[in-house]
Simulated scan of single mutants.
Amino acid sequence: MLNFVLFGPPGAGKGTQSEKLINKYQLVHISTGDLFRAHIKNQTALGKRVSKLIAEGELVPDKITIDMLEEEIDKNPTAKGFVFDGFPRTIPQAAELDKFLEEKGSKIDGVIALDVDKDELVKRVALRQKETGRLDDQAEKSQKRIDEYFNKIILVLPYYDEQKKLTKINGIGNIDDVFNNLCAVIDKY
């Protein structure tokens, strides 16, 4: 089993690159953002709780996120591996993911961080909001999410760096060039 965390701020290209990775490596993509949006769309009890938090640009509590993630992993018992997108966002989440995967006889093989500067992120998210209408991409909310990444979420990277699992790659440039750089990292495993 091959498990990777694709790490980066909103607008870094995690979703775009994840699609390409799952096609090439036959992995299951788990995006906490997509899971949250699906629960919100289906107006589940969880979706209603999460909707308010996301609309305010807040992070969903660890317990809710982890339970939902574990449920999604359990739905895919024959998966060749997973690409985690948007998770973990905190060191306790990273430790909990490690623990859960270890109980399943697996682990995180690597963490690839897409490095994109704030100015580029703002442009990308504004374009995505125009194209998709995602509420969490509206200017004020997206800026709050970008700031949240650079002020808090990025603090997870040293956790993986200490385990020698972290690789940073330039997330700016041609989509295929970024993808080829991702593949060069993954192919080492």
Rank of each mutant, 00 (worst) to 15 (best):
E140D: 13
V111W: 13
V185C: 03
E140T: 02
Q138I: 06
F84W: 09
N23S: 14
T32H: 08
S106Q: 15
L21T: 02
N42G: 07
V60C: 03
A55I: 00
L21H: 02
I73S: 06
L35T: 09
E72H: 04
K164V: 05
A79C: 11
L21E: 14
D85Q: 11
E19V: 02
R89V: 06
V111S: 05
K118R: 13
L182H: 01
C183E: 03
V156F: 03
C183F: 10
Q26L: 12
E131K: 15
C183M: 04
I54L: 13
Q17A: 09
Y189P: 06
L97E: 12
I64G: 04
P77R: 09
Q138Y: 07
G173V: 03
D115T: 13
D187A: 11
L157C: 12
S106V: 09
Q43N: 15
F36G: 14
Q129K: 04
L6R: 02
F36Q: 03
I169N: 09
E120W: 00
E58C: 01
N174Y: 02
I146P: 05
V83R: 04
I153D: 00
V60N: 08
D34E: 14
K75P: 07
H39A: 15
K144S: 14
L166P: 11
L2S: 14
N76S: 14
G86S: 06
A113T: 11
K152A: 07
V111F: 08
E19T: 08
T167M: 07
K48H: 09
E70S: 07
D161Y: 00
E58A: 09
K104D: 04
I172A: 01
G57S: 10
I40S: 01
I146F: 01
L121W: 05
V28E: 11
I54A: 09
I54T: 13
E103W: 05
L182E: 09
A94N: 13
L35A: 03
A79I: 06
I73Y: 04
F87R: 01
D109W: 01
I108T: 08
A139N: 05
